[in-house]
Deep mutational scan, measured.
Amino acid sequence: DVEEQIRRLEEVLKKNQPVTWNGTTYTDPNEIKKVIEELRKSM
């Protein structure tokens, strides 16, 4: 579920933690925001 994935990513973003997405680890909050944007567009 895309909305659930977005929620999880936003939680990680709030905690300022790195997130691994599709085999890539993002540590930059701006990169994580881009991933969230892409997910929103795909909905």
Score class of each variant (00 low, 15 high):
residue 31 E to T: 06
residue 30 N to Q: 13
residue 13 L to P: 00
residue 35 V to I: 15
residue 5 Q to S: 12
residue 2 V to P: 06
residue 14 K to G: 09
residue 12 V to H: 15
residue 9 L to N: 00
residue 14 K to W: 08
residue 34 K to V: 08
residue 43 M to H: 09
residue 37 E to V: 05
residue 18 P to Y: 07
residue 26 Y to W: 04
residue 28 D to E: 08
residue 37 E to C: 04
residue 14 K to T: 11
residue 12 V to D: 13
residue 35 V to D: 01
residue 24 T to K: 14
residue 42 S to T: 14
residue 10 E to F: 04
residue 5 Q to L: 14
residue 5 Q to W: 13
residue 39 L to S: 00
residue 20 T to S: 11
residue 33 K to L: 14
residue 3 E to N: 05
residue 28 D to T: 08
residue 17 Q to M: 15
residue 14 K to C: 09
residue 9 L to G: 01
residue 13 L to W: 06
residue 10 E to L: 09
residue 30 N to L: 14
residue 13 L to G: 02
residue 29 P to I: 07
residue 31 E to H: 03
residue 3 E to A: 12
residue 1 D to I: 12
residue 41 K to H: 14
residue 21 W to H: 10
residue 14 K to L: 15
residue 22 N to R: 05
residue 4 E to K: 06
residue 11 E to V: 04
residue 27 T to Q: 07
residue 35 V to Y: 04
residue 39 L to H: 01
residue 43 M to P: 06
residue 1 D to S: 13
residue 9 L to Y: 03
residue 9 L to R: 00
residue 27 T to F: 10
residue 20 T to E: 15
residue 34 K to D: 05
residue 34 K to P: 01
residue 31 E to P: 02
residue 29 P to C: 03
residue 21 W to I: 15
residue 17 Q to D: 08
residue 10 E to N: 04
residue 5 Q to I: 15
residue 37 E to A: 11
residue 39 L to M: 05
residue 8 R to W: 15
residue 8 R to L: 14
residue 36 I to W: 03
residue 35 V to Q: 03
residue 3 E to G: 10
residue 36 I to E: 00
residue 20 T to R: 09
residue 38 E to M: 12
residue 36 I to Y: 02
residue 28 D to A: 04
residue 31 E to S: 07
residue 42 S to F: 12
residue 32 I to C: 01
residue 33 K to A: 12
residue 29 P to K: 07
residue 33 K to Q: 13
residue 14 K to A: 14
residue 1 D to T: 13
residue 16 N to M: 10
residue 29 P to A: 11
residue 6 I to D: 01
residue 8 R to G: 09
residue 8 R to F: 15
residue 17 Q to G: 11
residue 1 D to M: 12
residue 7 R to S: 09
residue 31 E to F: 07
residue 32 I to T: 02
residue 8 R to A: 13
residue 23 G to C: 03
residue 2 V to D: 03
residue 34 K to M: 11
residue 8 R to D: 07
residue 7 R to G: 05
residue 12 V to G: 15
residue 14 K to P: 02
residue 40 R to I: 13
residue 10 E to G: 03
residue 26 Y to R: 00
residue 12 V to A: 15
residue 41 K to G: 12
residue 7 R to W: 09
residue 36 I to T: 01
residue 35 V to P: 00
residue 6 I to C: 00
residue 19 V to D: 02
residue 14 K to H: 13
residue 10 E to P: 00
residue 23 G to V: 01
residue 5 Q to H: 10
residue 17 Q to C: 08
residue 20 T to N: 10
residue 12 V to C: 13
residue 26 Y to T: 03
residue 27 T to Y: 13
residue 11 E to T: 06
residue 11 E to H: 05
residue 1 D to L: 12
residue 17 Q to K: 09
residue 27 T to I: 10
residue 19 V to S: 03
residue 27 T to S: 10
residue 35 V to C: 05
residue 32 I to W: 03
residue 24 T to I: 15
residue 33 K to Y: 11
residue 33 K to R: 14
residue 8 R to Y: 15
residue 18 P to W: 07
residue 19 V to F: 10
residue 35 V to N: 01
residue 22 N to S: 04
residue 17 Q to I: 14
residue 40 R to G: 03
residue 23 G to Q: 03
residue 26 Y to F: 09
residue 7 R to A: 11
residue 42 S to C: 09
residue 3 E to V: 10
residue 7 R to T: 06
residue 43 M to R: 02
residue 11 E to A: 10
residue 38 E to D: 12
residue 37 E to K: 05
residue 19 V to T: 06
residue 13 L to M: 11
residue 19 V to H: 05
residue 28 D to Q: 06
residue 21 W to M: 08
residue 10 E to Q: 05
residue 17 Q to P: 06
residue 24 T to C: 04
residue 30 N to K: 10
residue 19 V to M: 10
residue 23 G to P: 01
residue 18 P to S: 13
